[in-house]
Design a protein around this nucleic acid. Structure first.
Lengths: 245, 245
DNA sequence: CGCAATTTTGACGTAGTTCAACACGTGTGG
DNA sequence: CCACACGTGTTGAACTACGTCAAAATTGCG
C-alpha cells in the first residue's frame, strides 16, 4: 500500500490548461469575455473514465468535443470481419471526437486505457456561441489543421518504414514527445499501452514487437520494466528512426 | 496526331464545382450574397501547373488554399537523408495546403503528376471575409474535419494491412473512388501515378509492386495497360481488401 | 496463493527485399 | 537514320525479416 494506487479515482497528473489542445475554445468562456450567454453545461471539466470504459462509441451522435486531461485513450474501429483495429492513441492535451464535425457522429470508439479523465465542450452550446464569437471558429480551424498535420505526419512515419524496428522506434519517440504535450522529449515514463495494442496499431504481431523491444534493450538503447519505459540513448534512437528533431 | 495530346494545355476533364471540396468557401463569393466587399483576387480559377512542376513547396508561407480542378498531384516530403517520400495524392475536388492553417506555412510540397490545374483562394481575403460571414468558417471547419477523417481512415487501411496485396488493392479501390469525387467507383481510368510513386507511398519496393500487379492481372481481377487501369471484378477486389462499401 | 492474462522465447515457413538482368519507349547527337 | 543513354517497368534467384505455431515465463488480480 504505497500510494493511492488502489482507489479508482485517477490521481494522475492533469495536463495544464495552457498545454491543452482545447484551450483555444475553453478560455474565451472561462474568462467570461464579451458577455456571451453561456450555460454552465458548456464546459465540463475532467469527466472521469475508468480503465476499459469508453468515452463515446463509433456512430453515436456528436454531443461533445473532448480533450484528454489525464490518462491515455486508444481509439478503435471494428473491421467488417469483427476484429478490433487500433487507429491511434490520445494523450493529455489532445482532442477526441474532432473528426465528427463533418458527419455529426463519431467515427471511432474512444476507450480509456488507464483510469483517465477528459474535459468536454457541449456542441450545442459551442455552435451557438461560435456564431457570436468569430475568433472561436478561427481557433477551432487552427486546431483541426494542426491535428490534420499531426496525423499525416504520423502516417508518413508509419508507412514509410524501412523495417519494423525503424517503425517501432519512430513510434516510441512520437509517444515520448506527446507525453510532454510536445514540449520536449520524456526520457522516462509509463507507457500505459499494452503490447497487444501497440502491435495492433503498428500492424505487426505481438511476438515481433516483443522481440524488437528485447533487441532494443540488448543494444542498450532503451530500458523497459513492465510498462515503465526509459529512453537511454535518444540521439541514437532518432538516428535509427531516420528523423531529425 | 490523334488529339490535342501533344500540346501542353491540360484539356482534361475539370471537376464540377458542385463536387469540389472547396465549393463551400467558393460559392458564398460566386453568388455574391451578403454584400461582402471582395477583391477579384479572392478566387483564382484553374491555375495551370505542368507535369513535374510544384504548386507550392514545404516551408513556404501559406498564401493560398488550393483545390485540384483537373489532373493529379502528389504531395511529398524530403527525409533528412535526402530521400523523397510520398505522403499521398490529391485528385480533382480535393484540397491542397489545408494543413497549413495552424502553422501558416505549407508542411509538404505539392507536385503535379500530369498537366493539372488548381483553383486557389487567397488567404488574406479569405480571412477578412470569413470574419464577416460565420457560415464560411463553419464550412471550412467541416472541410477540415472531413479531411481529418479521410486521412485517418486511409492510415488505418495502410497500417492495418495483413499483407502487401491487401494493402495494394485497398489503395486501388481508394483511388478508383476518388477518381469519381467519391460518387461511386470508377471502373476504368488513367492511373497517372508512376509505379515508383505508388511503391514509395505504400512503403514497398517497385519490384514487389510490379509482381503484385502482375498477379492481380493473372487472377483476372484487374487489367493494366501502361497506366490505364480497369477493375474487372470490383466485388472480389473489395472482398480481398477486407472492406465493405 | 493460484489462476488467467500478458509477455517473452524458440523453431520453422513464407512473403517481401535485394541484386541483377532484361525489355520497352523516348529523347539526343552524330 | 541509327547508336546510345536514360527513365520506367518487368522478371528471376537467393536471402532475410517477419509471421505462425507452440510453449515457457512473468505479471496482475481475486
Amino acid at each position: 500500500m504505497k500510494s493511492g494506487k488502489k482507489n479508482k479515482k485517477p490521481d494522475a497528473d492533469y495536463v495544464a490548461c495552457k498545454n491543452c489542445g482545447m484551450e483555444p475554445i475553453c478560455r474565451p468562456v472561462a474568462t467570461g469575455g464579451q458577455n456571451v450567454p453561456l450555460s454552465d453545461a458548456y464546459l465540463n471539466r475532467r469527466n472521469v473514465v475508468l480503465a476499459g470504459e469508453s468515452l463515446f462509441a463509433r456512430g453515436e451522435a456528436m454531443t461533445n468535443l473532448y480533450a484528454v486531461s489525464s490518462g491515455v485513450f486508444r481509439i478503435v474501429q471494428i473491421s467488417p470481419d469483427g476484429e478490433e483495429h487500433v487507429l491511434g492513441f490520445r494523450f493529455p492535451g489532445e482532442l477526441l471526437g474532432d473528426d465528427a464535425f463533418y458527419s455529426g457522429s463519431y467515427s471511432y470508439t474512444a476507450i480509456a486505457i488507464t483510469d483517465s479523465s477528459a474535459c468536454s465542450v457541449l456542441m450545442k452550446e459551442f455552435n451557438a456561441c461560435s456564431e457570436l464569437v468569430p475568433s472561436m471558429q478561427r481557433n477551432i480551424i487552427e486546431l483541426l489543421s494542426r491535428q490534420n498535420h499531426n496525423i499525416q505526419q504520423q502516417m508518413s512515419v508509419l508507412v514509410a518504414r524501412k523495417n519494423a524496428e525503424q517503425q517501432l522506434v519512430a513510434f516510441l519517440l512520437n509517444i515520448a514527445r506527446r507525453q510532454m504535450a510536445n514540449e520536449g522529449l520524456a526520457r522516462r515514463f509509463d507507457l500505459a499501452i499494452s503490447r497487444d495494442s501497440i502491435a495492433n496499431f503498428l500492424g505487426f504481431r505481438r511476438e515481433t514487437l516483443s522481440r524488437l523491444l528485447s533487441r532494443l534493450q540488448k543494444k542498450g538503447l532503451i530500458r523497459l520494466d513492465a510498462r515503465q519505459l526509459e529512453l537511454l540513448d535518444p540521439v541514437e534512437l532518432s538516428r535509427l528512426a531516420g528523423q531529425q528533431a
